[in-house]
Write a protein that binds this DNA or RNA. Sequence first.
DNA 1: CACCATAACTTGCTCAATCAAGTAAATCTG
DNA 2: CAGATTTACTTGATTGAGCAAGTTATGGTG
Lengths: 168, 168
Amino acid sequence: MTQPATTASLTGDELETWAGLATVLEWLPAALDAPLERDFGLTHFEYGILYALANAPDHALRMTVLAGYANSSLSRLSRAATRLEARALLERSRDPDDGRSTRAALTAAGLEAYAAATPGHVATVTRLVLDPLTAAQKRQLREITRRLQGAIRTDGAWQPPPSPVREA
Amino acid sequence: MTQPATTASLTGDELETWAGLATVLEWLPAALDAPLERDFGLTHFEYGILYALANAPDHALRMTVLAGYANSSLSRLSRAATRLEARALLERSRDPDDGRSTRAALTAAGLEAYAAATPGHVATVTRLVLDPLTAAQKRQLREITRRLQGAIRTDGAWQPPPSPVREA
DNA sequence: CACCATAACTTGCTCAATCAAGTAAATCTG
DNA sequence: CAGATTTACTTGATTGAGCAAGTTATGGTG
């Protein structure tokens, strides 16, 4: 592939750096999600919901709070909650303290599904991300992702949520 | 958030490493794509198609080859080509050498759209990924992504395509 | 050269994500 | 304390992605 002379483009090490990250960005999420989907019929997003609820007091959270934890719009969460409710993994009820709020709570089956899916997911993360790196590289990666997050956060309209709770 | 004693989970540095990467995995793609979408009405995927074609001989490629470059299923590419064709950025025609193949070619308008979108996209990549890192960190990141790609590639069913051409 | 398998798409169906509009319950304001 | 605003969702409509089935063209076999 030749570069057209008319357009700016990256070269050399910078191109290689970007290409490497771009490839990971494209393939890692799919590789992480596939076992979850295959073995438990859960998308990564749905697993994130179960994770947040499983680790919350009484295994319940208000929808808005849950949306923040899951990096989700309320609309998307609402749809996902409908799906999980249809599978009896989750229940919604009006919050007695504030009638505007909805309380989403894990059912016993939901907690069970979370407990069943978690070891495999942790194993996948370990296998694909942690084991391939040396201790020094993990340290480097922490600093690198910290910097990238900083750049994203200060980039105009992009405001990650206050506490991006991540699963596993 | 307390950890339930019943499930395996990551802790300490390992958790932090994973959480940092997961956050980047979640926010960086959106941050990279947003300006492209906003300013040119192009998804990252569509831009990738334009990039691959713009850099191909005669600005044309067979659909199957293009799907490989864009890391896409043929079905997804076909839909995207329909959309781009409707905007007159791309044309499809039967390949005279092999009647089974379809040749996708950039129109003049398509090449123009690619040229218009590229500088901004390169700037976004530079601002969000390259500028925040030191030269040493870029080097570290290249090696880290190399290792992660290796882990993904050897992970059971996950076979990235032979030559994952990345834009910019 | 007829037949069958394969390759290269295309298309219909379904699911999930977003956006915008709607509803209901606080909360603020004059 | 009545009316307006805000908050917290929910839902209808549109759009993109994947899967599976369909179509057309090639290539191999006896």
